[in-house]
Amino acid sequence: MGTGMRAIVVGVTFGMLLTLVGCKPAAPSGPAADARPKVALIMKSLANDFFATMAEGAQQHQATHAADYELLVSGIKNETDIGEQVNLVEQAVAQGARAIIVAPADSKALVPALRRAQSQGVLIVNIDNRLDADVVRQAGLQAAFVGPDNRDGARRVGEALAAQLKAGDEVAIIEGVTTTFNGQQRRAGFEDAMKAAGASIVAIQSGEWEMDKANSVAANLLSSHPKLRALLCANDNMALGAAAAVAAAGKSKGVMVVGFDNIAAIKSLLADGRLVASADQHADRLAVEGIELALASLKSGQPGADRATPVDVVTR
């Protein structure tokens, strides 16, 4: 290949990249942008429908309140990429965000980065997954929490399932990333409900919030515990993976699956009974409530109070 040809290849590639980056979705710029406060929404894996819904809700809200604020939306590759989420917090600060709405991928490890942001005058609102209270206090972070009571929600999902179980039935829990607060809460809620129903929890394993992982975990549980009656999954992504494993094992009749989040993808599964129940924590509202709290605090100069959002159990 000639030198000219090579230069063209490199040139075209970078040109393409620039165009790609230039076509950014929601980052209006121009003179008006400067007056409005920038609010950064930092979520977890955008591969998860739950956060995609959350992002859509936030973008719709911004579109109807375009004059009030500018929205920066970002997320990470997978649920465990904490380093990247810390990076997103730092970049938001560097971009001059006035407020950060964050769904932390880890309940503790994000605190220092958020505290550094706060020390630069950025308002922090914690949504979805609650930061560890002790660590927040130790670090001196001020962050209002907007989100559901996960333990209560999980308990109620568990109860919906328990209605179809007898005492002594074997069940297993597929929990989320074990280092997250909401993961721990949901697991605890499931355990509460199962204990109350007298079911026997034969295994608790992590599916790390991901469909793939949960699918292989579920498949193994099904073969090692042939009498298993139900799989309680800490989110719907994992419930989808588990339901697929159940179908693959030919046990659709005998093994029930519940999830959490009520993402769009599970509608049909709920309808035909492959999924017994899930919890809707109104993802689209979650970010919006966080944004509204942040805007109000920015206006008043007062840190907002924690706000509990509703959780509804959905069955077929």
Binding site: T80, D81, D106, A109, V177
Partner: peptide, 12 residues
Amino acid sequence: RLGSADPNAGVG
């Protein structure tokens, strides 16, 4: 950087 020790740290 994280102020904490996270067993998930360093994935990827």
